[in-house]
């Protein structure tokens, strides 16, 4: 109420927060972050792969091994079982790329998660969609795959009228859509929250009326708290994206689960 009556600040148009000018023609900040993510991931694993594997792991090697074991123990073993260990490189790349694209949202002076733009989540979701459908067709055959998808075994025949269209839509449309939107909207919402509290505290700190300046502490605390929260969200969204990809692939490979 105080804010509305005494201090009303104009929120910038949302495109001003999200769309970036080209640094060089055809390449803007989001593209740069994507390239940097791939580069950082590659460098971590390159430097890890160069080190002597026999000695106790240190530095980047330790980091890389922790990530590999995290993917294998917490994602693949939990969802796909031992058969899925061959998917480690794909899921590891997915996790690392999504995480490294999320994390710039909280790094000072960069503060733009590349996944807060639709392009990268959409591409990754489509990629996962292609991969799990291709795996389903490869392991069950095109007829078997669609039959298992649309007519799941163990369901009363009368329910197929209801279930078949739901399953078809859910598997082929809602899965990639929700996969992309979940990541994108989480990161966008986090980014907007950070922007709002940053703008509010800045406006309060620079207010002409001196009595308003100390009030700026509150949105600033909120900003700090939300930044900490975004650290968690950046990790959690990468984890959820990867584990859902793993679940979808496992479901396509082994239809009984």
């Amino acid at each position: 109420m105080i804010i509305n009556s005494i201090l009303s600040f104009e929120f910038p148009p949302i495109n001003e927060l999200l769309r970036w000018r080209d640094v060089v023609p055809g390449l803007n900040k989001v593209g740069l972050i994507a390239i940097a993510s791939a580069l950082i991931g590659t460098l971590i694993f390159l430097s890890a792969a160069r080190k002597d594997p026999k000695v106790a792991p240190k530095g980047t090697r330790n980091l890389a091994e922790v990530i590999v074991e995290f993917i294998e123990n917490n994602i693949i073993m939990q969802t796909m079982g031992r058969d899925g260990l061959g998917w480690t490189p794909f899921l590891l790349t997915l996790f690392l790329f999504v995480y490294l694209c999320n994390v710039p949202g909280i790094i000072p002076f960069i503060q733009m998660p590349a996944t807060a733009r639709m392009a990268i989540p959409m591409f990754l979701a489509v990629l996962v969609w292609i991969v799990f459908n291709a795996q389903g067709i490869r392991h069950q055959g095109p007829i078997g795959y669609f039959k298992n998808m649309m007519f799941p075994p163990g369901v009363p025949k009368a329910l197929y009228i209801l279930i078949t269209p739901i399953e078809l839509i859910s598997t082929l449309i809602i899965r990639p859509f929700s996969l992309a939107v979940r990541l994108f909207a989480n990161m966008l919402a986090g980014h907007l929250l950070l922007v709002i509290f940053a703008l509010l505290s800045e406006a309060l700190f620079q207010a002409r009326d001196r009595i308003l300046i100390p009030i700026g502490i509150f949105p600033f605390f909120m900003l700090v708290f939300l930044t900490g929260f975004e650290v968690l969200v950046a990790f959690l969204q990468a984890y959820i994206f990867t584990i859902l990809a793993a679940v979808y692939i496992a479901g396509a490979v082994h239809p009984e689960h």
Binding site: D22, N28, G31, A34, A119
Partner: peptide
């Protein structure tokens, strides 16, 4: 989605 971001990503 923007084309250039899509392509680079």
């Amino acid at each position: 989605p923007e084309m250039k971001e899509l392509v680079w990503g």
